[in-house]
Design a protein around this nucleic acid. Structure first.
Lengths: 191, 191
DNA sequence: TCTTTGAAAGGACAATTGTCCAACCTGTAA
DNA sequence: TTACAGGTTGGACAATTGTCCTTTCAAAGA
């Protein structure tokens, strides 16, 4: 549930050192700070060095849906830069965060001129599609209880690392339902 | 709900004519034929020239979840070729289908040597993430009735073009629920 | 110290959705 | 023709999930 991309992170760390003119900048965020906001232009592509952030959409009825939790090496803003549109989603820090920022133009230049980088981005995009497909299929096809067990298997400590409301929004259920199911699992001795 | 990518289709049609050695082959399928099967190696990337196919996963509990319906210009198999893993999903023809097939190695060569092609693929991948994000957020955050109205707006004739069970699987609901909601909408005079 | 705010927890009831089943068509094969 | 398989439809009831609301607790600020 917390996505990572170590291979990309390694490469961006190298770029951070080798590229001239601060092509890759480091920046820190504190919990609840916004990294990208829906409807705004995306000027920087960001790659997470450490910490956790959430990627979410807010629907017309006020409900918030969490697309992913992003950890080390995950990249955000690349979709918007590649397809040249405004930001679809919001990215917000959950923990303290350190990110590498790459200016839009620099990112496009790297895509064109650096074959390794280009391929890493192709792979990053493919992975996103891959894990989104698997996640939504599983979530839709299984009861809440199974979904929670699956998250626990992936990331045993998710209950304490991520606010309950965010977990509920990730699963597309209400906080009430989440609590109810967690309770059932406690009674059963799991969790 | 039926995804298209005309820009990519145009380019692949050009490749079909210009590339030597049958780099791009045309093939036809009839309804229910399998184009890609879960767990198998992907040797060809396919781009749809005409017709409709469904992309779906089958879960351990036997439930089938439909990722997307693909129409003109949509591409399948590229995720597997780029990330070098076995097929995640199944692709099956719904209507009669004509596809362009590109061998894995040819696809990789084009990605490396043809900048326009490379960029079209980057955009295709980005779009997939984009529309997946929007769709799942909307679906999870709205009742079945709203989801059906949204599909009808997108593709007015979907009820007759796509089997009911497939629509239910696409929305992650049962056939019973789908029928119930369709009935409600009929009574209300919509649909 | 005394509010105040926000996250967490759960009771009670309503609404939605699933499960199981039977009935009804339509086209195809025996 | 007859039988059968597959897609479609909806009744009856069970199970799940949502809505609304109250309580508790802990951290932050007046």
């Amino acid at each position: 549930m917390i996505r990572q991309n170590k291979e990309l992170l390694n490469y961006v760390m190298k770029l951070h050192q080798s590229e001239a003119n601060n092509a890759v900048i480091e920046q820190t965020f504190t919990p609840k700070q916004q990294i990208i906001q829906h409807g705004k232009q995306v000027i920087y592509v960001c790659i997470f060095k450490s910490g956790i952030a959430k990627c979410f959409l807010t629907e017309d009825n006020g409900k918030e849906f969490i697309e992913e939790f992003f950890g080390e090496g995950e990249i955000v803003g690349e979709i918007e830069v590649i397809n040249e549109h405004l930001s679809v989603a919001n990215i917000e820090a959950i923990s303290d965060l350190v990110v590498y920022k790459i200016k839009k133009d620099t990112f496009n230049r790297l895509l064109e001129s650096d074959k390794t980088f280009n391929h890493l981005i192709l792979k990053a995009l493919s992975s996103k599609i891959h894990y989104k497909a698997i996640r939504h299929s599983y979530n839709q096809s299984h009861p809440v209880e199974s979904n929670l067990l699956r998250l626990k298997k992936d990331f045993p400590d998710f209950i304490s690392a991520i606010p309950k409301q965010d977990i509920a929004n990730y699963l597309g259920i209400t906080l009430r339902s989440l609590n109810r199911t967690l309770n059932d699992l406690k009674v059963k001795g799991i969790f």
